[in-house]
Amino acid sequence: MGEVIVVTSGKGGVGKTTTTANIGTGLASMGRSVVLIDADIGLRNLDVVMGLENRIVYDLVDVVEGKCRYKQALIRDKRYPELHLLAAAQTKDKSAVSPEQMVKLCSQLTDEFDFIIIDCPAGIEQGFKNAIAGAHKAIVVATPEVSSVRDADRIVGLLKSADISEVWLILNRLRPDLIRRGEMMTLEDVVDILAIDVLGVVPDDEAIVVTTNRGEAAVTEAKSPAGAAFRNIVARIVDENVPMLEVQEDGGFMAKIKKIFRKG
């Protein structure tokens, strides 16, 4: 029986799609079978981030409308055969899918796959409601900025009232240099305010730009600090006893990751 995890944030542009792609790729690299669902109907993006934009035949709306079986719509990843994408429809809007249809689809997929990761659209309207409907757990992505953290708090409240009890935070795009100078909120600051369990912290890293340009995921880049952070996050999704890579205010995140690499 697979697990359904929705990746959400409220605010746009904080890294939901990148996080979804990296977690999915990371889980597949550990031998798990994965389906990534792009729930952002009308603003399809996970396909291009994954480098699978030329392979789409059927999409999520085709599946829920019964135009094809879900197996026909699943696009296999280039590198990991156990990783699949169910693309969003680009020509429809959010009302093309209902929460009930998402619940049904997710429960079908859990019979066959270990993880179903849903990339939620920004906002708290219909698209959000669809994306969380079939989810068992939620990952809230936020950056250490006032707008993002405020929206994350709203999302956590909505997830709780939708009875999704397991909600984890990923704090994205942390800048150790700014934190050292006191010019950025720390993980502790954000956790103080949100009162939420932390899954991981991802430092700001140009490798994210470079890998996304290529349609690849940083999680498989040995030297990328963000990649290392995502590997840690994936390991913690699979086994919650894995300790979190922490941000150190003095040495910063980078230093700690470098140390880990040297050991390896």
Partner: peptide, 23 residues
């Protein structure tokens, strides 16, 4: 005051207000 601390204090106020207004 460093901007990180200012951000935290401002956020705390606005988020607690949000929580009241939305509940």
């Amino acid at each position: 005051q460093k901007s990180g601390e200012i951000a935290k204090n401002r956020l705390q106020l606005v988020i607690y207000q949000d929580r009241m207004n939305t509940n």
